[in-house]
Design a protein around this nucleic acid. Structure first.
Lengths: 207, 207
DNA sequence: CCTACCGATCGGTAGG
DNA sequence: CCTACCGATCGGTAGG
């Protein structure tokens, strides 16, 4: 009996997942405090109270969202797939994979900003711990396969992944620049405005 | 008569300034949507309605805050003070001054994050325009003083100041890392957790 | 999972 | 600049 309903995810789990996904989109769009629980239930055509069958309060929804969708979650899969004859090659290889994974859903980097701004990073240690131990397992597999890699390599490797994340966050248009549909990045905006200014000045100076 | 009251700022202006300052602190601490207008007035021991003698709504308060305290505002003063025999030296000199100015109140960089996350960067063009034209004036002064500097220099210079801002934002502990009183940065946290993991593994491997 | 409902708090106004 | 007040909306609960 039970197996029949378990073949697919049971209904409750599916609803829960949909809540997390919808909440994620809304949080990314507006931030945490600017997203109301009503917006989430409206979009899913649920009663406002339906959330509380799955979560005990609004913050728990955000916790579920960030634990599932924080970009750090993609690190282990990039590590396990990575290859290379020495550390440098390995790092380059994993970085490439990771940037590709992040590039698929760049909006997710906004979750990190929300986490820092609206929760002061309180959820990060937990996420880090989980991601780190998963990554360490994966690295162990590679390490056993390749005698050149040692624990010093692992250290270098982890540092590289961290650096990569922060530089990704920094340069990412979605998280660091103005509006989504604003194609010109802040950098381009700066440059354009500057050039306009220079040209205006130049032509007025020539008079 | 009027001059007497004008010797110091009139009372209204002083209240307005205090509102902006207090609001700034609260926004930096909690973000925009998580800060209520009541928190602002409570801290100033004002009636809730007193805000609306100075601003027509909550967002106008934020606008005033970011226009006054956004880190970009410090760029012109760093430019005007800068010196150097060639572009490279000039850039290094101005960068140093700017980093010092930003370092005095590093929390202000959170305003940029709030602006991006909760307002989608809508206030930035206005701020940029003002700051840019002020900077251009200052640069013009330096340029007249130093024949080696040309418009190409100015272009390079502006790009450098932009790059500096973004790398400052990225590496700044206040804006990019967890809690204020959490002395270990995320980077250190990563590194520490990693080392712990490695040591644990090493000692268990040796058994 | 819904109906019905709640107290608290929100941003903001009227009128002085 | 304050007193008094407002409708709307917030997150959340009771009970089925």
């Amino acid at each position: 009996m039970k197996e029949i309903t378990d073949r697919k995810k049971n209904k409750g789990q599916k609803t829960r997942d949909k809540i997390i996904q919808t909440a994620c989109e809304l949080f990314i769009e507006n931030g945490y405090h600017a997203t109301s629980t009503r917006q989430i239930t409206d979009q899913l055509e649920l009663a406002p109270s339906a959330l509380y069958n799955h979560f005990s309060n609004k913050e728990e929804i955000f916790t579920a969202v960030i634990e599932k969708y924080h970009p750090w979650n993609r690190i282990p899969e990039a590590v396990v797939d990575a290859d290379g004859d020495d550390v440098e090659e390995l790092i380059r290889n994993a970085s490439k994979k990771l940037l590709k994974l992040w590039g698929e859903k760049p909006e997710m980097s906004r979750l990190h900003l929300i986490e820092m701004l609206e929760f002061k990073g309180g959820h990060l240690p937990g996420i880090f711990e989980r991601v780190f131990s998963k990554s360490a397992e994966s690295f162990q597999v590679i390490q056993n396969r390749n005698p050149k890699l040692n624990n010093i390599s692992q250290r270098l490797f982890v540092r590289a992944m961290i650096g990569l994340f922060f530089s990704y966050i920094m340069t990412d248009k979605v998280s660091m620049n103005s509006t989504e549909d604003d194609i010109t990045s802040d950098l381009d905006y700066f440059a354009d405005a500057y050039l306009q200014g220079v040209f205006a000045k130049e032509s007025s100076d020539r008079k």
